[in-house]
Amino acid sequence: MSEDAQTEKRRLLREKRQQKFGNGGGSSRLAKITGQADNSFLSTDSPLDSNSTTPTPGKETGNKDSTQEMDELLARVAHSEPKNGRSVDQNQTSGQKNPELDLFAQLAKLQSGESNSPGATPETPDIFAQLMKSMQTGSQQGEQNPGDFPFGNGQPPIDAAVLAAHNASVNKLKAYTIIVKWVFFILPYVYYTARSSRETFQSSTLNAVTDKFSFFTIFTTFEILTMSVYYQLLLSAEKSHHINTLNSNSKIMSLVSMIPPGLVPVKNLHGKISQTLQYWDVISMYLTDLAFTILLIGIFQYKWSS
Protein backbone atom coordinates (compact mmCIF):
# COMPACT_ATOMS: atom_id res chain seq x y z
CA MET A 1 0.00 0.00 0.00
CA SER A 2 1.39 3.42 -0.91
CA GLU A 3 2.21 6.05 1.73
CA ASP A 4 -0.75 8.22 0.63
CA ALA A 5 -3.15 5.30 0.83
CA GLN A 6 -1.89 4.46 4.31
CA THR A 7 -2.31 8.06 5.45
CA GLU A 8 -5.83 8.09 4.05
CA LYS A 9 -6.62 4.81 5.78
CA ARG A 10 -5.32 6.16 9.09
CA ARG A 11 -7.43 9.29 8.67
CA LEU A 12 -10.59 7.33 7.94
CA LEU A 13 -10.00 4.99 10.86
CA ARG A 14 -9.44 8.00 13.12
CA GLU A 15 -12.74 9.51 12.00
CA LYS A 16 -14.45 6.19 12.58
CA ARG A 17 -13.07 6.05 16.13
CA GLN A 18 -14.09 9.62 16.82
CA GLN A 19 -17.62 8.86 15.66
CA LYS A 20 -17.83 5.92 18.05
CA PHE A 21 -16.67 8.00 20.98
CA GLY A 22 -18.72 11.08 20.15
CA ASN A 23 -22.39 11.86 20.82
CA GLY A 24 -22.59 10.19 24.22
CA GLY A 25 -20.69 7.15 23.02
CA GLY A 26 -18.00 7.76 25.63
CA SER A 27 -20.37 7.37 28.55
CA SER A 28 -22.03 4.28 27.14
CA ARG A 29 -18.62 2.66 26.60
CA LEU A 30 -17.69 3.33 30.23
CA ALA A 31 -21.07 2.01 31.34
CA LYS A 32 -20.42 -1.13 29.34
CA ILE A 33 -17.10 -1.66 31.15
CA THR A 34 -18.46 -0.96 34.63
CA GLY A 35 -21.44 -3.21 33.85
CA GLN A 36 -19.01 -6.14 33.75
CA ALA A 37 -18.13 -5.83 37.41
CA ASP A 38 -20.53 -6.28 40.30
CA ASN A 39 -20.84 -3.42 42.78
CA SER A 40 -18.70 -1.02 40.78
CA PHE A 41 -18.67 2.54 42.06
CA LEU A 42 -16.70 3.94 39.16
CA SER A 43 -18.07 6.92 37.32
CA THR A 44 -19.45 6.47 33.83
CA ASP A 45 -19.34 10.18 33.00
CA SER A 46 -17.23 10.50 29.92
CA PRO A 47 -14.54 13.18 29.74
CA LEU A 48 -15.67 13.64 26.16
CA ASP A 49 -19.26 14.43 27.21
CA SER A 50 -18.51 16.54 30.25
CA ASN A 51 -15.34 18.12 28.91
CA SER A 52 -16.64 20.24 26.10
CA THR A 53 -14.41 22.75 27.89
CA THR A 54 -11.59 20.39 28.73
CA PRO A 55 -8.19 21.91 29.09
CA THR A 56 -6.52 20.59 26.04
CA PRO A 57 -4.05 21.52 23.42
CA GLY A 58 -6.96 21.96 21.07
CA LYS A 59 -9.63 23.36 23.35
CA GLU A 60 -9.42 26.38 25.56
CA THR A 61 -9.79 26.11 29.33
CA GLY A 62 -7.76 26.13 32.49
CA ASN A 63 -6.67 23.27 34.60
CA LYS A 64 -10.22 22.29 35.51
CA ASP A 65 -9.56 18.79 36.78
CA SER A 66 -6.97 19.75 39.34
CA THR A 67 -9.10 22.74 40.43
CA GLN A 68 -12.07 20.43 40.83
CA GLU A 69 -9.98 17.95 42.79
CA MET A 70 -8.78 20.73 45.07
CA ASP A 71 -12.34 22.05 45.50
CA GLU A 72 -13.55 18.59 46.42
CA LEU A 73 -10.69 18.07 48.84
CA LEU A 74 -11.27 21.43 50.49
CA ALA A 75 -15.00 20.78 50.71
CA ARG A 76 -14.36 17.39 52.29
CA VAL A 77 -11.96 18.80 54.83
CA ALA A 78 -14.21 21.72 55.66
CA HIS A 79 -17.54 19.97 55.96
CA SER A 80 -17.02 16.29 56.62
CA GLU A 81 -16.55 14.59 59.95
CA PRO A 82 -13.42 12.49 60.13
CA LYS A 83 -13.95 8.77 60.61
CA ASN A 84 -12.89 8.89 64.24
CA GLY A 85 -15.76 11.26 64.89
CA ARG A 86 -13.76 14.40 65.57
CA SER A 87 -14.37 17.47 63.50
CA VAL A 88 -11.65 19.47 61.82
CA ASP A 89 -11.98 22.18 64.43
CA GLN A 90 -11.59 19.63 67.17
CA ASN A 91 -8.46 18.43 65.45
CA GLN A 92 -7.15 21.94 65.50
CA THR A 93 -7.73 22.34 69.19
CA SER A 94 -6.41 18.94 70.13
CA GLY A 95 -2.86 20.04 69.72
CA GLN A 96 -1.23 20.93 66.44
CA LYS A 97 -0.76 17.37 65.30
CA ASN A 98 -2.09 17.89 61.79
CA PRO A 99 -0.76 21.19 60.45
CA GLU A 100 -1.66 20.16 56.86
CA LEU A 101 -5.25 19.52 57.85
CA ASP A 102 -5.30 22.81 59.69
CA LEU A 103 -4.03 24.59 56.59
CA PHE A 104 -6.65 22.93 54.39
CA ALA A 105 -9.37 23.84 56.85
CA GLN A 106 -8.24 27.47 56.79
CA LEU A 107 -8.17 27.43 53.00
CA ALA A 108 -11.62 25.87 52.86
CA LYS A 109 -12.98 28.55 55.15
CA LEU A 110 -11.38 31.22 53.05
CA GLN A 111 -12.82 29.70 49.90
CA SER A 112 -16.32 29.56 51.33
CA GLY A 113 -15.92 33.15 52.52
CA GLU A 114 -16.09 32.17 56.19
CA SER A 115 -12.82 33.74 57.13
CA ASN A 116 -12.14 33.81 60.82
CA SER A 117 -9.19 36.14 60.54
CA PRO A 118 -9.01 38.69 63.32
CA GLY A 119 -10.89 41.83 62.41
CA ALA A 120 -12.82 40.27 59.53
CA THR A 121 -16.57 40.86 59.66
CA PRO A 122 -19.32 40.29 57.11
CA GLU A 123 -19.25 44.01 56.40
CA THR A 124 -15.49 44.21 56.17
CA PRO A 125 -14.18 40.79 55.12
CA ASP A 126 -10.42 40.41 55.00
CA ILE A 127 -8.53 40.68 51.74
CA PHE A 128 -7.98 36.90 51.32
CA ALA A 129 -11.64 36.09 51.77
CA GLN A 130 -12.53 38.85 49.34
CA LEU A 131 -10.04 37.61 46.78
CA MET A 132 -11.25 34.04 47.08
CA LYS A 133 -14.84 35.17 46.82
CA SER A 134 -14.14 37.32 43.81
CA MET A 135 -12.34 34.35 42.20
CA GLN A 136 -15.32 32.11 42.92
CA THR A 137 -17.87 34.56 41.59
CA GLY A 138 -15.67 35.75 38.76
CA SER A 139 -17.49 33.68 36.19
CA GLN A 140 -20.99 34.21 37.52
CA GLN A 141 -23.41 37.00 37.00
CA GLY A 142 -25.17 38.06 40.10
CA GLU A 143 -26.34 40.84 42.27
CA GLN A 144 -24.21 42.46 44.88
CA ASN A 145 -24.75 41.15 48.35
CA PRO A 146 -24.00 42.93 51.57
CA GLY A 147 -20.33 42.58 52.29
CA ASP A 148 -19.33 41.70 48.76
CA PHE A 149 -15.97 42.90 47.63
CA PRO A 150 -16.62 45.95 45.49
CA PHE A 151 -13.77 45.23 43.09
CA GLY A 152 -14.94 41.71 42.34
CA ASN A 153 -18.67 42.23 42.17
CA GLY A 154 -19.42 39.06 40.24
CA GLN A 155 -19.41 40.80 36.90
CA PRO A 156 -17.41 38.95 34.31
CA PRO A 157 -15.24 41.09 32.09
CA ILE A 158 -17.39 42.29 29.18
CA ASP A 159 -16.01 42.60 25.70
CA ALA A 160 -16.03 46.26 24.60
CA ALA A 161 -17.60 45.46 21.21
CA VAL A 162 -20.38 43.43 22.82
CA LEU A 163 -21.03 46.21 25.32
CA ALA A 164 -21.16 48.81 22.53
CA ALA A 165 -23.62 46.67 20.56
CA HIS A 166 -25.71 46.18 23.68
CA ASN A 167 -25.71 49.91 24.44
CA ALA A 168 -26.77 50.65 20.85
CA SER A 169 -29.71 48.23 21.11
CA VAL A 170 -30.70 49.70 24.51
CA ASN A 171 -30.59 53.23 23.08
CA LYS A 172 -32.70 52.05 20.17
CA LEU A 173 -35.23 50.54 22.57
CA LYS A 174 -35.34 53.78 24.56
CA ALA A 175 -35.85 55.82 21.37
CA TYR A 176 -38.70 53.57 20.18
CA THR A 177 -40.33 53.71 23.61
CA ILE A 178 -40.22 57.52 23.60
CA ILE A 179 -41.56 57.74 20.02
CA VAL A 180 -44.41 55.34 20.76
CA LYS A 181 -45.28 57.15 23.98
CA TRP A 182 -45.08 60.66 22.60
CA VAL A 183 -46.49 60.18 19.12
CA PHE A 184 -49.17 57.57 19.77
CA PHE A 185 -50.36 58.55 23.21
CA ILE A 186 -49.20 61.81 24.78
CA LEU A 187 -49.58 63.98 21.68
CA PRO A 188 -53.16 62.88 20.81
CA TYR A 189 -54.19 62.77 24.46
CA VAL A 190 -52.87 66.26 25.23
CA TYR A 191 -54.41 67.52 22.01
CA TYR A 192 -57.87 66.26 22.99
CA THR A 193 -57.48 67.48 26.57
CA ALA A 194 -56.39 70.94 25.47
CA ARG A 195 -59.15 71.12 22.86
CA SER A 196 -61.82 69.96 25.31
CA SER A 197 -60.99 72.83 27.64
CA ARG A 198 -62.03 75.37 24.94
CA GLU A 199 -65.03 73.52 23.54
CA THR A 200 -68.34 74.06 25.24
CA PHE A 201 -69.99 70.88 23.99
CA GLN A 202 -68.44 67.44 24.17
CA SER A 203 -69.49 63.91 24.93
CA SER A 204 -69.55 62.71 28.52
CA THR A 205 -67.00 59.98 27.70
CA LEU A 206 -64.49 62.48 26.37
CA ASN A 207 -65.22 64.69 29.35
CA ALA A 208 -64.44 61.83 31.74
CA VAL A 209 -60.95 61.33 30.33
CA THR A 210 -60.01 64.94 29.82
CA ASP A 211 -60.87 66.55 33.16
CA LYS A 212 -57.88 67.58 35.25
CA PHE A 213 -58.03 64.75 37.83
CA SER A 214 -58.58 62.00 35.24
CA PHE A 215 -55.77 63.38 33.08
CA PHE A 216 -53.21 63.00 35.85
CA THR A 217 -54.45 59.50 36.80
CA ILE A 218 -54.49 58.26 33.22
CA PHE A 219 -51.12 59.86 32.46
CA THR A 220 -49.46 58.31 35.54
CA THR A 221 -51.03 54.88 34.89
CA PHE A 222 -49.81 55.01 31.31
CA GLU A 223 -46.32 55.99 32.48
CA ILE A 224 -46.19 53.08 34.94
CA LEU A 225 -47.35 50.66 32.24
CA THR A 226 -44.90 51.84 29.60
CA MET A 227 -42.08 51.97 32.12
CA SER A 228 -42.79 48.37 33.17
CA VAL A 229 -42.86 47.22 29.55
CA TYR A 230 -39.64 49.14 28.87
CA TYR A 231 -37.86 47.51 31.81
CA GLN A 232 -39.06 44.06 30.84
CA LEU A 233 -37.69 44.58 27.33
CA LEU A 234 -34.46 45.95 28.77
CA LEU A 235 -34.06 42.92 31.02
CA SER A 236 -34.70 40.51 28.17
CA ALA A 237 -32.12 42.39 26.07
CA GLU A 238 -29.59 42.07 28.90
CA LYS A 239 -30.39 38.41 29.21
CA SER A 240 -30.02 37.74 25.50
CA HIS A 241 -26.72 39.66 25.35
CA HIS A 242 -25.50 38.07 28.62
CA ILE A 243 -24.71 41.49 30.01
CA ASN A 244 -25.72 42.93 33.33
CA THR A 245 -25.23 46.65 33.04
CA LEU A 246 -28.16 47.73 35.19
CA ASN A 247 -26.02 47.74 38.33
CA SER A 248 -22.77 49.12 37.09
CA ASN A 249 -23.24 51.01 33.90
CA SER A 250 -22.63 54.49 35.19
CA LYS A 251 -19.62 56.48 36.21
CA ILE A 252 -21.17 56.96 39.61
CA MET A 253 -21.21 53.20 40.13
CA SER A 254 -17.59 52.84 39.09
CA LEU A 255 -16.66 55.62 41.50
CA VAL A 256 -18.67 53.98 44.29
CA SER A 257 -16.91 50.68 43.56
CA MET A 258 -13.61 52.34 44.42
CA ILE A 259 -14.70 53.12 47.99
CA PRO A 260 -13.34 50.40 50.26
CA PRO A 261 -15.98 48.72 52.45
CA GLY A 262 -16.11 50.05 55.97
CA LEU A 263 -14.94 53.53 55.02
CA VAL A 264 -18.49 54.87 54.71
CA PRO A 265 -20.82 53.90 57.57
CA VAL A 266 -23.53 52.64 55.19
CA LYS A 267 -24.18 48.95 54.73
CA ASN A 268 -24.19 47.69 51.14
CA LEU A 269 -23.42 51.10 49.72
CA HIS A 270 -22.93 49.67 46.24
CA GLY A 271 -26.36 48.01 46.20
CA LYS A 272 -28.11 51.07 47.60
CA ILE A 273 -26.56 53.46 45.10
CA SER A 274 -27.40 51.02 42.32
CA GLN A 275 -31.04 50.90 43.40
CA THR A 276 -31.17 54.69 43.74
CA LEU A 277 -29.82 55.05 40.21
CA GLN A 278 -32.49 52.72 38.88
CA TYR A 279 -35.20 54.78 40.61
CA TRP A 280 -33.58 57.92 39.27
CA ASP A 281 -33.72 56.44 35.77
CA VAL A 282 -37.46 55.81 36.14
CA ILE A 283 -38.13 59.25 37.65
CA SER A 284 -36.10 61.00 34.96
CA MET A 285 -38.12 59.28 32.23
CA TYR A 286 -41.35 60.26 33.98
CA LEU A 287 -40.17 63.86 34.38
CA THR A 288 -39.12 64.01 30.72
CA ASP A 289 -42.59 62.86 29.63
CA LEU A 290 -44.19 65.35 32.01
CA ALA A 291 -42.04 68.16 30.64
CA PHE A 292 -43.00 67.16 27.09
CA THR A 293 -46.68 67.16 28.07
CA ILE A 294 -46.48 70.63 29.65
CA LEU A 295 -44.66 71.87 26.55
CA LEU A 296 -47.41 70.46 24.32
CA ILE A 297 -50.16 72.01 26.45
CA GLY A 298 -48.34 75.35 26.23
CA ILE A 299 -48.03 75.08 22.43
CA PHE A 300 -51.70 74.14 21.96
CA GLN A 301 -52.90 76.89 24.33
CA TYR A 302 -50.77 79.43 22.50
CA LYS A 303 -52.01 78.22 19.11
CA TRP A 304 -55.67 78.31 20.00
CA SER A 305 -55.48 81.53 21.95
CA SER A 306 -53.87 83.43 19.07
Binding site: R10, L13, R14, R17, Q18, F21, G26, R29, L30, I33, S46, P47, L48, N51, T54, T56, P57, G58, K59
Partner: peptide, 15 residues
Protein backbone atom coordinates in the same frame (compact mmCIF):
# COMPACT_ATOMS: atom_id res chain seq x y z
CA UNK B 1 -10.93 3.70 28.36
CA UNK B 2 -10.92 6.90 30.40
CA UNK B 3 -7.38 7.68 29.29
CA UNK B 4 -8.33 7.21 25.64
CA UNK B 5 -11.35 9.47 26.06
CA UNK B 6 -9.27 12.13 27.81
CA UNK B 7 -6.68 11.97 25.04
CA UNK B 8 -9.36 12.24 22.38
CA UNK B 9 -10.76 15.27 24.14
CA UNK B 10 -7.24 16.75 23.86
CA UNK B 11 -7.35 16.06 20.10
CA UNK B 12 -4.49 13.63 20.51
CA UNK B 13 -4.19 10.57 18.35
CA UNK B 14 -4.47 7.20 20.08
CA UNK B 15 -4.81 4.06 18.01
Amino acid sequence: ERLIQELMSYDMDVN
